[in-house]
Every structure is written in structure tokens, then in C-alpha cells.
Design a protein around this nucleic acid. Structure first.
Lengths: 237, 237
DNA sequence: CCTTACTGTGTCCGCTGGACACTGTTGCGA
DNA sequence: TCGCAACAGTGTCCAGCGGACACAGTAAGG
């Protein structure tokens, strides 16, 4: 797995030249996933789109899990650069870019669940994020934990707002929201706080990303300023 | 889907009495998922564990997606009650309870991705969370967005820290971390910020949940105190 | 009592990921 | 120059999956 993701396969010396490349295979798979969802990515279809037999892919990829891993890292790509920003603006840009990546490839939400081996592109994303917090005064673990909070929030909002083509269920966007509204209208007494909260929503939708980011950044700023004023250790409770 | 999750199926009048219940089927499926992961849950195995044929399940469940939805809501269960807490402590307890639920059923991380129809238990979780923020001065949309931040962070930490039995890859916990360490040691120059951040980690692992929650709560507190001091509308930039 | 609604079974289908043996192709070493 | 070994791509086969459908058995209502 690590060899594949990090391009550490030894180049073949003898034998016929490969007719495909790992990147080309992953690109075809990404195209399929973008169009019809991750579940539509099968070995047969990927091979068919490349005009090859299914088993030919197994010369390049040990199995489907590895193909998905390569797809994931390739689809995430490299993060855009935003040099010369303070930590807050840098993190804001980082989060917006990550959200855009999820928007471009919604199936990434499925392929990035759970612990897994990270590819070079994904590690570069992490490095950029940590880099944004490098001069903030937080130490290493805090930088990583802070980045996890930001990345998790981006994931959450992406899950809420994105349409999933070929996802787990075939439910339409309207079906889900209408079902929620219908249930909450008939059984509002079971969820009083939720019902009143939903009633007071007027038109401020799609603000979840920036709202959450501002809260997270405010919370980080509290810690950072406290850390800066009292440099080491003793932090007032 | 909504009828199943919310128990709105009309009770049968004539004919033989059903030998199974929807809850029993979901319970068997949950047992399988807890033991061997969500991928191990197949109609055949669930039916076999109940000593029935696969097709008998389709009398109770229209398809596998619906079974997973019922499983999910049933496994999440009802949130524990913590009456009489201020919003910060209430949210802290809520997040800890949610983390415990993910710890008990790691496959929930897979089954709760993407937009879907929520079940009654899950809606009760949301209601409790909103309830914690009801008297905080935030309006409805902000309460929901804040809860999304907290829930997203719990998800993120759960994904990082949990072992996935029978997940997507068969990689062991040690394999993943050792692969990361090995890559970062050989190509540290490509990820300078990440490398230095990881070096400065000593023993403060598993603090990601509480660390992130404190940052989020601090950020919420900034907004809440600003909202309380200046009651409506005009918020200083 | 018989009709009718309902439960559970058996059979079949297309699809999936993958193992394996096979043919064809290419480069290196003798 | 030639043969061997390494490698690429194909064809065949398999178990398992979700699911459609027809069927037999059962229980309640008219």
C-alpha cells in the first residue's frame, strides 16, 4: 500500500512495456466516481473505459482498496499556496480550499473515513495546515489537534451540503428535507428544542462553514493570546 | 424509508404471525457489525444468525440500505440525560456521550456519512444538543451550526482513534502509524512543518477530543458573551 | 368452511472482487 | 545471435453479494 501511494515501485527492466500508467487508471476511476459515485467504480468499468480487460488492472494495483487509496490522494491533489498570511487567514484559506476539494469530488467523504495510510498529497495538505500554525506559539500536538478540528468541521459541512451522486441511498435532496420537515411537523412535541430552533431559521443557510470556522478560530485565538502573554506552562484557569 | 425508521408500518391483520421483529433483525445485524465490521453485514449472514432464509428478511426490510438505516438509529440509541447543566458542561457531556456511542459501534462512522433520513433516536440526540444551547442567547441557526461543529469534531476524533474491525483496508493499527513514521523519517524535507510538529509530541496523545472541545467552547463563549452584552443585532466586527 | 392476506422458502439472475493458468512480448546475458 | 526469464494482458472460473419472482404453508375474517 505504502509503495503504491508513494510511487516506490521498482521500474520494470525486462518484458513488454506497460500500456497503462497508475495515474491513468486512477484518473479513469476518478472520472467514474465524479460522475456516478464511488460505488460505480468497479474494476470492470475502469478497465472498460480504458479499453482493457479487468484483470489487466491487477498488474498495476493489488486490489480495489489500493485503487481507492490512489484515487483519493490523486483527487485531493496538492493544496493551493497562500503565502504570507497570518495564521487565521491562512487557516481560513486552507479550510476553503479543502471544502472546494470535497465539492469537486464528493466521494472523498466516503473514501477518507477511518484510519488509513496517507498519501503524499494528503500529507502535503497536513503540512500546509500545520505550517499555518507554526508561528502561533502552540506546540506540535496542539497544532495537529487544531488542524483536526478545522478539517473535521469542513468535512461535516461538506457532508451536510453536498449532493451525493450514487451514494448509499438513492434518496433525493428534497426527499430528505421534506421527510424531516414532515416528521418534525407531526411529532414536534417529541423534539421541542429542535422544532423551535428550526422555526427561527429564516434564510441564513449555507453559513455553516464560515460560522463554525469563526467559532473555532476565536477559540484558538483565546488559547494563542493566553499562550503569548504567559509564554510557557502556567496558564490561568 | 421514513415509515420504517419511524415505525409507521400498519400492523398486519390476517395471515400468519411474523416470526421475527424489525428490532430483532437490526440487533442481529448490529452484533455482526460490532464483531466484524459493517462490510460483514450481509443479508445471508443476518438471516443465518437468526436461523432464517435470506429472502425472509425482505418481508421486514425493503433493502439493505434501509436495514443499515434502522441499524444505525437503533445502535445510536437514546442519549443519556444530564439535567441542570450550563451550556458548556451540557455540551461537554453530550460530546462525550456521542464519542462513547462511536466507540461502542465504530461502524457508525461509515453508516452516517452523507445526507440521509434521520431516525427518531438520532433526532433525539440533536434535540438534546440544541436543548443545551437553548438558553444561551444564540438563535436557532447558530445553535444548529454550533452543534454541527461539536458533532463533527467528535466524529473526527473517533475516526482517528478507533480501530476499525473489518473496515475498508485490513491494515493493522501499527502498520498505519509505522508507515507514517517511516515515510516521514525518509522524506522529512518534503513536510518540514509536519515533521517538526510530530517531533514535539511527547506523550500527550488522546487529548484531541477534549482539546478541540475546549477550543470550540471557547469560541462559542466569545460569541455568546458578545451576544449577551449587546443583546440584538449590532455585533462589533 | 372457504377465501384472502400474509409469512417464509427455493430458484434464478446480474454483478462484484479476485485466483489462476495461459499466451504474447521484450530485454538482458551468454 | 539466440534463448531464457521477466513482464503484460487475456480468458476462465469461483464464491459471494443484493434482489426479483413464483410458490407453499398458515392463520384470520366473512
Amino acid at each position: 500500500m505504502t509503495e503504491l501511494l508513494w510511487g516506490r515501485r521498482p521500474p520494470p527492466s525486462r518484458g513488454p512495456k506497460p500500456a497503462m500508467t497508475l495515474e491513468g487508471i486512477a484518473e479513469a476511476a476518478i472520472t467514474i466516481a465524479d460522475a456516478d459515485g464511488l460505488d460505480a467504480v468497479s474494476m470492470q468499468r475502469v478497465a472498460g473505459d480504458l479499453s482493457f480487460t479487468k484483470m489487466a488492472l491487477y498488474r498495476y494495483v493489488p486490489g480495489k482498496a489500493e485503487l481507492v487509496a490512489v484515487m483519493t490522494d490523486q483527487a485531493i491533489g496538492l493544496p493551493p499556496e497562500h503565502p504570507g498570511l497570518a495564521w487565521r487567514e491562512a487557516l481560513q484559506a486552507w479550510a476553503t480550499d479543502l471544502f472546494a476539494a470535497f465539492e469537486k469530488h464528493p466521494w472523498l467523504l466516503h473514501s477518507t473515513v477511518g484510519r488509513r495510510v496517507l498519501g503524499p498529497n494528503e500529507l502535503t495538505w497536513m503540512d500546509r495546515g500545520v505550517q499555518a500554525l507554526a508561528g502561533s506559539g502552540l506546540h506540535g500536538g496542539e497544532q495537529l489537534d487544531s488542524l483536526a478540528v478545522v478539517a473535521g468541521h469542513v468535512r461535516t459541512i461538506a457532508e451536510q451540503s453536498l449532493t451525493m451522486p450514487g451514494g448509499t441511498t438513492g434518496s433525493t435532496e428534497e426527499d430528505i428535507t421534506s421527510a424531516l420537515v414532515e416528521v418534525l411537523s407531526t411529532e414536534a412535541e417529541r423534539f421541542p428544542a429542535l422544532a423551535t430552533a428550526l422555526q427561527s431559521i429564516d434564510g441564513n443557510q449555507n453559513q455553516g462553514l464560515t460560522f463554525g470556522l469563526q467559532r473555532i478560530f476565536d477559540g484558538l485565538e483565546v488559547l494563542i493570546t493566553a499562550r503569548t502573554s504567559a509564554p510557557a506552562g502556567s496558564q490561568p484557569a
